[in-house]
Nucleic acid binder design. Structure first.
Lengths: 218, 218
DNA sequence: GTCTATATCGGGATAGAC
DNA sequence: GTCTATCCCGATATAGAC
């Protein structure tokens, strides 16, 4: 792996684990066994690193989003879609730890990041409206917006919430708990045999989701 | 006002607006037109200030919580109770901006803060269970826990979410939006004439809550 | 109680040799 | 591409005069 790439991978890892704020350029260099000077040769400061990581995040998230909107989804597909989104977010956790500070320090990413988030939410809103058209989902526009906002809240802030409560939620459990919260909010508005979806909820709650949904997705 | 008190008030204000991380001891002193040395005479560093502010937060929140549990509440009272809780949280926003960093830096408040949060959630759980007993609320224990978790998420993280989206939500709107989210999650499980509570939701959504709920609370 | 002056420390950033 | 040496700066913290 080239040095530049190693720097990105290591930075992402350190940022995710300790918070961007608590990782200095020297820390990154130290972790990589290179000199601070060398680090600066490749990236002129953390600003550039963060920007590069954002580009990576955006490109990966865009891939997921377009996969979710290219063809009609079933409700089950929809939750697998959400699963993929949450997973991507988790890979770039550090962006969500303290966005206001981050945007202050690196003002370049503020706008694009917000746009990305709004795109994501718009995308979910569209999917819900499709379900509504297909009569498998019944909610007013206001309710749909509420759901979208809740999904956004869960997607961007659940990790902060759990870490704040001091519950050491590991990466896997975190995904299921987030999904369960979303499902819980959506469930009352879904129009199919109750048994069928409570099964899904059960699956998520007991964290056997992959077995249940894994094949649906391919 | 004594200098010590002025320091606390000003610190809280600066912390809330700019984040504890971005406010140095010198900033506080400057804002108060006193010298850094003088500041240190009263509080030996930000650590002590933060600890004092936490004590204040805890005592005020405890007052609200005990008011909410001393006598049986109606559903309307319950939402006014949530209103007061969210309002208190808002007065000490900075604690919620980046708790993990805060707890790292000021390890003394980590435990008490978590306990306070868990107490609050337990309190809400108890209230929901009471409503269940009175048959005005129907939900399984798992569902109640889900609701409590959503309330916790909304209470602790909504502000971060809105600021992350770049929506400049002013203090008042913020309260109503948070309340509306909670109401939305709870609504499907409430057992009274639909019209009655949709009225409440409408009131919250249109932000005329104070008129609707203000008198109920006294 | 309040001030000025100063010590210390860590992070960001760069110059210049190899 | 990589290193060492160094500089600058902001934040914390304290000493000692008034």
């Amino acid at each position: 792996m080239k040095t530049a790439e190693r720097i990105l991978v290591t930075s992402l890892d350190l940022f995710n684990h300790h918070g961007e704020n608590n990782v200095s350029s020297v820390d990154i260099a130290l972790e990589l066994d290179i000199s601070p000077g060398n680090l600066y040769y490749h990236f002129k400061g953390k600003e550039v690193i963060v920007a590069a990581l954002f580009d990576l995040y955006k490109s990966q998230m865009d891939k997921v989003l377009s996969a979710g909107t290219s063809k009609p989804l079933s409700i089950e597909d929809f939750f697998y879609f959400l699963y993929l989104i949450i997973e991507q977010g988790q890979l770039f956790q550090f962006f969500f730890h303290n966005p206001s500070d981050l945007f202050d320090k690196y003002s370049g990413i503020a706008k694009p990041f917000k746009i990305q988030l709004i795109t994501l939410e718009k995308c979910i809103e569209n999917l819900l409206n499709e379900f509504k058209t297909k009569k498998i989902f019944a909610a007013s526009n206001a309710q749909i917006l509420q759901i979208v906002e809740l999904v956004g809240l869960v997607f961007t802030q659940s990790a902060n919430y759990y870490s704040m409560k001091g519950q050491a939620v590991d990466d896997e459990n975190y995904l299921y708990k987030s999904l369960a919260s979303v499902l819980f909010a959506v469930l009352p508005y879904i129009n199919i045999e109750p048994g069928e979806l409570h099964q899904l909820q059960e699956a998520i709650a007991t964290q056997s989701l992959v077995g249940e949904l894994g094949d649906v997705a391919e």
